[in-house]
Amino acid sequence: MPGLVALLFLVIPLIALIVQTPWEAFPKIISSPEALEALRLSLVTSLVATAFAALFGIPMAWLLAREILPFTGLLRALVIVPLLLPPVVSGVALLEALGRRGLVGAFLYDTLGITFPFTTVGVVIATTFVAMPFLVITMEGGFRSLHQRYEDAAATLGAGSRRVFLRITMPMVAPAAIAGLVLCWARALGEFGATITFAGNFPGVTQTMPLAVYTALESDRSVAIALSMVLLVVSVGVLVALRGKYLQTRAS
């Protein structure tokens, strides 16, 4: 019974969203320039954030899994913190670090004239900060479950460490990598709190889909619901596609 309650609890809001969607006005709402701009921005920033997370996060996951650095336990805890932190707090922390008068941001502004708030780069920074831990945690699990002897064998056969990582290690942890990348991307796509706090809210520059939904809620509820529907469809669509292609084969 409690299981059914949980099921209803999770499913009913989604059904309500579908029921309340203004289907007649739907094509017009989602093809408006504002909506398309927000969708484009969301796709671009979430994909770039996922790419950055992969580029830097996967090597870090490997460092954690192989316990190469001292105090690995502590480091792992620090990496997980942004995952548990309320996103708005992450936004405040980012402002304190990379804002124009922030710890590092003041130096960047004074020497190079670079600022991140109110820019699309700022959105990528905020979403990467919030989403990367999902990839790191998943990948670390993948690396840990991998026997080191395969890597050792390749190394004894003369492969360099980079070659071992790319040709032996990565293909073997591919399922974990895909699961991690999807989780990370989905989290990046849905990012709201850190983005509006650190990067602000401006159409075409920093107003991603979740921010557009929240802004529309202030003026036109039906627009907000239609935009929410788009996000729901995108999320479910990607999960279904990946499930058919990868996750099932792993289970079999």
Partner: peptide
């Protein structure tokens, strides 16, 4: 930026951003 309430505008002025 077009913040969703006036206090958010103020906060970002106070922070110097």
């Amino acid at each position: 930026t077009r913040e969703l309430d006036v206090r958010s505008v103020l906060a970002k002025v106070i922070s110097g951003d």
